[in-house]
Computed example of a mutant assay.
Amino acid sequence: MTMIINRIYSITATEEPNAFMVDADIEVSGERFRSKHAYRESDPHGLSPVIKQWIANHPDFLIGSYMTPAAQTPEEVREQIPALTARQFRLGLVAGGYAPAQVIKAIDTMPDGTAKETAKIEWEYAATFNRTHPLIATVAVALGLNDSQIDAMWLTAVNL
């Protein structure tokens, strides 16, 4: 199998010593495409020896420094929390000491209007619940739960 590097767009260091992410235009057996490749200097397989030779032939090519990723905000972390099925969500409430009837009561105390009707439909018919859905915040306030408590209950419910 013939591998050719037509162009290297960037080489960036990673957290691991002697490991890099390489963005390149390559050709493999006559087929050309752009690829992002994880490259380790010690890897003797695949595209790695070709990249190693290219780097040796281009000693002045600027290798980007590794940048520690910025810490995620709590909201960004919550966006990544898995959705719960309706079953998991309700069992999670019960495991946390809350009855589903308390959710219905919380929704019933909302002011009449579209938001209340939407919340009723979401509660009754949603197949899944996302941690960041507005209904979760509404119910949490009514139940006196803070974000940390909801997160803990949610992560427990994922395994139910």
Rank of each mutant, 00 (worst) to 15 (best):
P17G: 03
P17Q: 04
N18A: 11
N18C: 09
A19L: 02
A19N: 01
A19F: 01
A19M: 03
F20W: 01
F20M: 00
F20H: 00
M21I: 11
M21A: 07
V22E: 02
D23V: 10
A24F: 02
A24L: 08
A24E: 01
A24N: 03
D25Q: 07
D25A: 03
D25L: 05
I26K: 01
V28S: 08
V28W: 10
S29T: 08
S29Q: 12
S29W: 06
G30K: 10
G30T: 10
G30H: 11
E31G: 01
R32Y: 05
R32F: 03
F33N: 14
F33K: 12
R34I: 08
K36T: 14
K36C: 13
K36P: 07
K36I: 13
H37M: 15
A38M: 13
Y39D: 00
Y39N: 00
Y39R: 01
R40L: 09
R40D: 02
S42L: 04
D43K: 03
P44L: 04
P44Q: 08
H45F: 13
G46F: 02
L47C: 05
P49V: 06
I51R: 00
Q53H: 14
Q53V: 12
Q53A: 15
Q53P: 12
Q53W: 12
W54Y: 14
W54T: 06
I55W: 01
I55D: 00
A56R: 14
N57G: 07
H58V: 05
D60T: 15
F61V: 09
F61L: 10
F61D: 04
L62C: 06
L62D: 07
I63K: 06
G64M: 04
G64P: 01
Y66M: 05
Y66N: 02
M67N: 12
M67Q: 15
T68L: 04
T68Q: 07
P69L: 06
A70T: 11
A70L: 09
A71G: 13
T73V: 05
P74A: 09
P74N: 11
E75P: 04
E75W: 13
E75F: 13
E76A: 15
E76T: 14
V77A: 08
R78H: 13
E79K: 14
Q80E: 14
Q80I: 05
A83V: 14
L84G: 01
L84H: 02
